[in-house]
Deep mutational scan, measured.
Amino acid sequence: RPRTRITDDQLKILRAYFDINNSPSEEQIQEMAEKSGLSQKVIKHWFRNTLFKERQ
Rank of each mutant, 00 (worst) to 15 (best):
Arg1Tyr: 06
Arg1Ile: 08
Arg1Lys: 00
Arg1Ser: 04
Pro2Cys: 00
Pro2Thr: 13
Pro2Phe: 15
Pro2Gln: 15
Pro2His: 15
Arg3Met: 15
Arg3Ile: 07
Arg3Asn: 11
Thr4Ser: 05
Thr4Phe: 13
Thr4Val: 08
Thr4Met: 15
Thr4Gln: 04
Thr4Glu: 08
Arg5Tyr: 14
Arg5His: 14
Ile6Glu: 06
Ile6Gly: 02
Ile6Asp: 07
Thr7Cys: 03
Thr7Met: 13
Asp8Ala: 10
Asp9Pro: 12
Asp9Trp: 06
Gln10His: 04
Leu11Gln: 07
Leu11Pro: 00
Leu11Tyr: 15
Lys12Thr: 10
Lys12Trp: 02
Lys12His: 03
Lys12Pro: 06
Ile13Tyr: 11
Ile13Asn: 05
Ile13Val: 11
Ile13Ala: 03
Leu14Gly: 00
Leu14His: 00
Leu14Pro: 00
Leu14Asn: 00
Arg15Lys: 13
Arg15Ser: 12
Arg15Met: 15
Arg15Leu: 09
Arg15Ala: 05
Ala16Arg: 14
Ala16Cys: 09
Ala16Gly: 13
Ala16Tyr: 12
Ala16Lys: 07
Tyr17Glu: 09
Tyr17Gly: 09
Tyr17Ala: 06
Phe18Arg: 11
Phe18Met: 10
Phe18Trp: 07
Phe18Ile: 03
Phe18Pro: 04
Phe18Tyr: 13
Asp19Ser: 15
Ile20Phe: 12
Ile20Ser: 10
Asn21Thr: 12
Asn21Gly: 04
Asn21Leu: 08
Asn21Glu: 14
Asn21Gln: 04
Asn22Ser: 15
Asn22Glu: 01
Ser23Trp: 06
Ser23Gln: 12
Ser23Ile: 01
Ser23Ala: 13
Ser23Cys: 12
Pro24Ile: 03
Pro24Thr: 02
Pro24Phe: 01
Pro24Trp: 02
Pro24Glu: 03
Pro24Tyr: 01
Glu26Tyr: 13
Glu26Ile: 12
Glu26Cys: 05
Glu26Trp: 03
Glu26Ser: 09
Glu27Val: 09
Glu27His: 01
Glu27Thr: 05
Glu27Trp: 13
Gln28Gly: 06
Ile29Cys: 07
Ile29Trp: 06
Ile29Leu: 12
Ile29Asn: 02
Ile29Val: 08
Gln30Asn: 09
Gln30Cys: 04
Gln30Val: 06
Glu31Asp: 09
Glu31Phe: 05
Met32Tyr: 05
Ala33Trp: 01
Ala33Phe: 11
Ala33Tyr: 01
Ala33Pro: 00
Glu34Pro: 01
Lys35Val: 02
Lys35Trp: 01
Lys35Asn: 04
Lys35Leu: 04
Lys35Glu: 05
Ser36Phe: 03
Ser36Asn: 03
Ser36Leu: 05
Gly37Pro: 00
Gly37Phe: 02
Gly37Ile: 01
Gly37Met: 10
Leu38Trp: 01
Leu38Asp: 01
Leu38Gly: 01
Ser39Gly: 04
Ser39Cys: 02
Ser39His: 07
Gln40Glu: 04
Gln40Leu: 12
Gln40Asp: 04
Gln40Asn: 05
Lys41Ile: 08
Lys41Ser: 07
Lys41Cys: 13
Val42Thr: 10
Ile43Leu: 05
Ile43Ala: 02
Lys44Arg: 12
His45Met: 10
Trp46Ser: 02
Trp46Tyr: 12
Trp46Val: 05
Phe47Leu: 07
Phe47Gly: 01
Phe47Asp: 01
Arg48Gly: 10
Arg48Tyr: 03
Asn49Thr: 13
Asn49Lys: 15
Asn49Cys: 07
Asn49Met: 08
Asn49Phe: 05
Asn49Trp: 07
Asn49His: 15
Asn49Glu: 14
Thr50Val: 09
Leu51Cys: 08
Leu51Trp: 06
Leu51Ala: 12
Phe52Gln: 12
Phe52Ile: 12
Phe52Cys: 15
Lys53Arg: 08
Lys53Asn: 11
Lys53Ser: 13
Glu54Met: 03
Glu54Asn: 06
Glu54Ala: 09
Arg55Val: 05
Gln56Tyr: 03
Gln56Asp: 02
Gln56Met: 07
Gln56Ser: 02
